[in-house]
Nucleic acid binder design. Structure first.
Lengths: 124, 124
DNA sequence: GATCGTTGGTATCCGTTGGTTACCAGAACA
DNA sequence: TGTTCTGGTAACCAACGGATACCAACGATC
């Protein structure tokens, strides 16, 4: 029997999932892999400023959560392909709604920041 | 003129917004304040395990982004009410979609974790 | 034959960040 | 007089993220 979902309770398993979303790199990887299957270094080149360590670390935890599939091919040098599982695809769809929000409201946020930084911050 | 939105480019302002989502506490605060206006310590009691420091810090940056409104009342002791702005409400709605995903897929994720931790991890 | 570049990582260090604890003012309450 | 409530700030410390170096094994270049 599951305990009542309550993201504000630290013991709730839903919070684990929310903490995963609270991972900048995980979000970017999910969006990227939803577009196409990619190899390790291809992902690395596309997501600017991600270090090898964070990429392999994040991919590993995404794989553990059943969101990303990892396939190794015995080529030379070895090829490793990453793609989304069906579960991962459903999450990616939800996460893309966030990027849409970001793209359409970025100007309002930046305007608010400028107002706040000027000192007087009146809000509506 | 805005540069083309590209969350994978570190210079893109959209990434700033995405980084904000990548803040565990910010997400929880947004959801909480979408339900009701709350005072500082009321928020603190509801969101378990958040420290005073992180709460005031996160609230401050949410206010700067124009997502949260802060109102001080000259009672004694002083009362500070936090509520969402209209901008904040639209983001909260988007973020709640994520918690819905979390609640409905938490079992699948946990099952994947158990499979992964047992060693052999086959994926579908 | 030596060096470089490619693959996909791991190991190490170090600075920034998050979290814990202590402390503050000011009034009510016991 | 001490305690509690309010909403914070300051200091300290562990933990995490990020940069750098390094690894094996092979192809291509010099």
């Amino acid at each position: 029997m599951l305990q009542r979902p309550d993201p504000f309770n630290a013991q709730c398993p839903t919070r684990q999932v929310l903490d995963r979303i609270g991972d900048k790199w995980a979000v970017l990887i999910l969006i990227m892999l939803d577009r196409e299957t990619l190899r390790f270094n291809a992902l690395r080149r596309r997501i600017e400023n991600i270090s090898q360590k964070m990429l392999s670390q994040t991919l590993k935890s995404l794989e553990r959560d059943g969101l990303v599939r990892r396939e190794v091919f015995a080529t030379v040098p070895v090829t490793v392909e990453y793609s989304l599982t069906e579960l991962g695809r459903t999450l990616a769809k939800t996460v893309e709604a966030l990027t849409l929000w970001a793209e359409s409201h970025i100007e309002a946020v930046q305007e608010a920041q400028r107002r706040y930084d000027r000192g007087g911050h009146e809000m509506n």
